[in-house]
Simulated assay, not measured.
Amino acid sequence: MDHPSSRPVGRIGRRSALAGLLALTAAACSSSSGDPGAGQAGGGADDFPLDLANCEATLHFDAAPQRIVLLESAPVTTLDGLGVLDAVVARAGAFPRGYYDAELTARIEAIPALSEDIDTAGHLQISQEVVIAHSPDIVFGLPNGLTREAMRDAGAEVVVQDVFCAAAGERASFETLSSTIATYGRIFDRHEQADALISTLEERVAAVSDSAADLRTATAAVLYPSLGGGPLYTYGAGSMVTAQLDALGIENVFADTAERVSEIGSEPLLAADPDVLIMLYQGDGDGSEVRDEMVTQDQLSGLQAVTQEAVLPLLFNFAEPASPLVVDGLERIHEWLLEREG
């Protein structure tokens, strides 16, 4: 197990985050396929056929996709911002109401649900035959049991969140969010909508970062507890939670962990003893039951964040992966810290 970081981030992290914000619009116009002219606003039929790098794969589109299957909830707000959510023909996994307003919740619940079977580690359980039966031309998410090859043979490309396949140790930033939105804008031929969404999110992140200058909280750890006494996971440099904490000028005590997410024992957590804990969870509810189960574990009882009740439950997509929900999550963390510090 990697040991917690001893390198201070603090207010330097905020300056790094702001520097990253200045690159958001530039990143939005960059090409994932290496074509220096791709990704500019306007676009149209001339953008196709389109080849895009996605993790270890190259995706090919002859035209903008018309039938979307969602096997994860994270892309919802990006697709909605681009004006293509109505093209979703099926969904699977958890889509908690806590992420969305009433109007968007109603639209999501009107989409046929294929499976809501989530294991204790938060992974969707579904067969690829069920997905293929809905004739998608693009699928978001690659849970166990599905392969890119099978989906492509059935006429669908699979998009995996870039943050899930970044190089180990690579530090996440809000440029990742900008790049993701820009890529979706290219896929669906919605360049202007992508640029507008990026600009709005850029302004919101900058506003939070400026307002966070006087926060006294110095350190934090972000955890995902498995239910029923299973493993405890923490998030490192490659996670968007590190980008959030950098924007707030707070040190992620596990930001030097090479993996984006890794299993953790009590010893390194007790040694780091962060000021606050952010506890990620999935499903409906406010997360209080999951938080209570986690903090009652004997090995965590000595943490100052536990004794001082400085534990924030946060729905998973408010922290991971890169979507507009991460900006919502940043604002929620900031508001919670302001309330705590009075």
Rank of each mutant, 00 (worst) to 15 (best):
P231E: 12
N317I: 05
D35C: 02
E109H: 08
L59I: 13
Q40C: 14
I198N: 09
M1K: 03
R171F: 00
D328W: 05
I181M: 08
G155T: 05
E339A: 08
V253H: 04
A196C: 00
S33K: 04
H191I: 01
T307H: 00
C165V: 04
T120N: 11
V160A: 07
A319G: 11
G43E: 09
I250M: 04
D117K: 11
V261P: 04
P268H: 09
A133G: 09
V160T: 15
S16I: 10
L24E: 14
V261F: 08
T219D: 12
L300W: 13
M240W: 10
C165W: 11
M240L: 14
S115R: 02
P231D: 14
L277H: 04
T219Y: 01
L314H: 14
A247N: 05
H3Y: 14
D101F: 10
I250G: 07
T78K: 01
L325M: 12
F188D: 01
Q128G: 11
S73G: 12
R14C: 11
S135E: 06
T183Q: 15
P49E: 07
E289K: 09
G93K: 07
R260M: 13
Q308D: 09
L245G: 11
P268T: 04
R152A: 14
D292W: 02
L146A: 09
V88R: 07
G229R: 12
A272Y: 14
Y100L: 00
A133E: 15
G329M: 03
P143D: 04
A194V: 04
L82K: 10
S288N: 09
V76T: 15
P225L: 02
A121H: 14
H3W: 11
G42I: 07
S323F: 00
L338N: 11
G329N: 06
G342T: 10
S32D: 11
T58L: 00
L201Y: 03
G342P: 05
S135C: 00
S135G: 02
D292K: 06
A87R: 07
N252K: 04
E149T: 14
A221F: 14
V261W: 08
A113V: 12
G93N: 05
A102V: 11
S288C: 01
D286H: 03
A247L: 01
D47K: 02
L337M: 08
L124S: 06
A28W: 06
V276L: 12
A94E: 13
A310D: 09
L124R: 08
T105I: 00
L114M: 13
A45P: 09
V222I: 15
G93T: 10
G342F: 01
I198R: 02
I278F: 05
T58N: 03
G145K: 04
H334K: 03
P136V: 03
E331R: 08
E309H: 13
G34H: 12
D153G: 10
D119T: 12
T176E: 09
E56K: 13
F316M: 03
D189E: 13
D195T: 13
L114S: 07
D51Y: 11
L303M: 04
A17D: 02
Q299V: 14
G43C: 10
